[in-house]
Amino acid sequence: MRGDKLVIDLDCGRYALDTRAVAGVVEKERLPFLPGGKGFASGIISFRNEPVTIIDLPSALGDLGAGAPSVHKIIVLREKGRVLGVDIGGSEISFLWDEDIEGKVSGEKGLYTSGRIHAGSRPIDIINWPALYDETLRMLSAEDHAPKESLDSR
């Protein structure tokens, strides 16, 4: 859990991502549609000519009250062949350096978090993005999650 962190200020809390996994940050006005998209999988973009699946981070973290953002700030994460885009809407990002978090990290885990940084006024949960990736993969499995639309529902 050591290493420099990119900190995201969401309405529902502060979260951190390991900067070693951050391949880039891009902004989009609109996300192209993802057929068969379910749950917090919200779209797809092209990043360096490669497709990147996007998830809506507030939704993934349980903030279902957050409306559709007017702007999409996307943090592209890449590690060991896995690529995922995390849409943080218009939320602010900042950095926390490794030396600043030394001795301030505890092991509280959540569904998609792997630890907590006790720095500043509010704790910062460290996002376990491989777990988010795995859940996205499961959700987008064709067999179980095809739309239930049918001809007579027109």
């Binding site: 973009i45 995922l84 990736y133 987008l140 064709a142």
Partner: peptide
């Protein structure tokens, strides 16, 4: 490719010249 390797309703994708995935 994962995580959209078993995406429902699509069998592949292409990048248009403007960079939009279709």
């Amino acid at each position: 490719l994962p995580p959209i390797s078993r995406l429902w309703g699509a069998s592949g994708m292409t990048m248009m010249v403007d960079g939009t995935p279709v």
